[in-house]
Lab assay of single mutants.
Amino acid sequence: KDKDLLKGLDQEQANEVIAVLQMHNIEANKIDSGKLGYSITVAEPDFTAAVYWIK
């Protein structure tokens, strides 16, 4: 199951987060929520590491 990592990002921010996570071998998903911006989700086992790397 995926957990929400970040919400309300613009496309550039979302792409930067995806890139950082991929560099650390964390699979992440970018979801277009329309006017609400983009959300990033990661698998539950990767959540703690993902939070660490996006600081």
Rank of each mutant, 00 (worst) to 15 (best):
L9E: 02
E16P: 01
A14Y: 03
A14V: 05
G8E: 05
K35A: 13
V51Y: 10
I26C: 04
D32Y: 14
D46C: 08
L36Y: 13
H24E: 01
S33V: 11
V42G: 01
H24A: 06
V17P: 00
Q13L: 07
D2F: 14
L21S: 00
I26E: 01
L9R: 01
G37C: 08
E44L: 10
P45L: 13
D32K: 09
I31Y: 07
K55V: 14
V42K: 00
I18Q: 04
A43Q: 10
I40M: 01
D4V: 15
E27T: 13
L9W: 01
G37W: 07
L6V: 10
K3G: 04
D4H: 14
L9I: 07
K55Y: 14
D2V: 13
F47Q: 01
L21K: 01
Q11C: 13
N25G: 15
Q13P: 03
I54A: 05
V17S: 02
E27I: 13
W53E: 01
K7V: 14
V51D: 07
N15A: 09
N15R: 06
I18T: 03
V17F: 10
V51W: 13
A28V: 05
A19I: 08
K55P: 09
I18F: 07
A14D: 01
T41N: 03
V20F: 15
K3L: 12
A14P: 01
D10V: 04
K30C: 12
I26A: 02
D2M: 14
S33C: 15
V42I: 06
T48E: 15
K7Y: 11
V17K: 02
I54D: 03
D46M: 09
S33F: 15
D2S: 13
A28R: 01
D4S: 13
V20W: 15
S33E: 15
A43V: 03
A19T: 07
E12M: 10
F47M: 04
D10F: 05
T41V: 10
N29K: 14
A14K: 02
K3F: 08
D46Y: 10
Q11N: 14
T48G: 09
K30V: 14
N25K: 06
D32I: 06
D32E: 08
N29E: 07
I31S: 05
Q22R: 13
N29Y: 11
E16Y: 15
V42L: 04
E27A: 14
A28W: 07
L5K: 01
T48L: 14
I31H: 09
K30A: 11
D10P: 05
V51E: 12
Q22E: 08
M23C: 10
I40E: 00
L9V: 03
V51C: 13
V17N: 01
V20I: 14
V51M: 13
Q13Y: 09
V51R: 06
D46G: 03
K35Y: 12
K30M: 14
A49D: 11
T41P: 00
S39Q: 06
N25S: 08
E27F: 13
N25H: 11
E44P: 07
T48P: 13
I54W: 09
L21A: 00
Y38A: 01
Y38G: 00
D46A: 05
T48K: 11
E27M: 15
I40C: 03
K35W: 10
I54Y: 05
A28Q: 00
E44Q: 06
L21Q: 03
A50T: 02
E12Q: 12
H24C: 07
E27R: 14
Y38W: 15
L6Q: 02
A28N: 01
T48W: 14
D4C: 15
I18W: 07
V42F: 01
K30T: 06
N25C: 10
V42P: 00
K7D: 08
K35V: 13
S39K: 13
V20G: 02
L6Y: 07
G34L: 04
L36T: 09
E44H: 09
I31A: 04
A19Y: 11
Y38M: 04
D2I: 13
Y38V: 05
Q13W: 08
G34Q: 04
Q11S: 12
A14H: 03
K7L: 12
E12G: 08
N15C: 11
A43N: 06
I31R: 05
K1L: 10
K1T: 09
K35Q: 11
Y52H: 10
M23L: 12
S39C: 10
N29P: 03
G37T: 08
V42M: 02
M23S: 12
Q13R: 12
I26P: 00
Y52V: 06
K35H: 13
V51T: 07
I31M: 05
D10H: 07
N29S: 09
L6W: 05
I54G: 00
K35L: 12
Y52N: 07
G37A: 05
K7P: 02
V51A: 07
D32L: 11
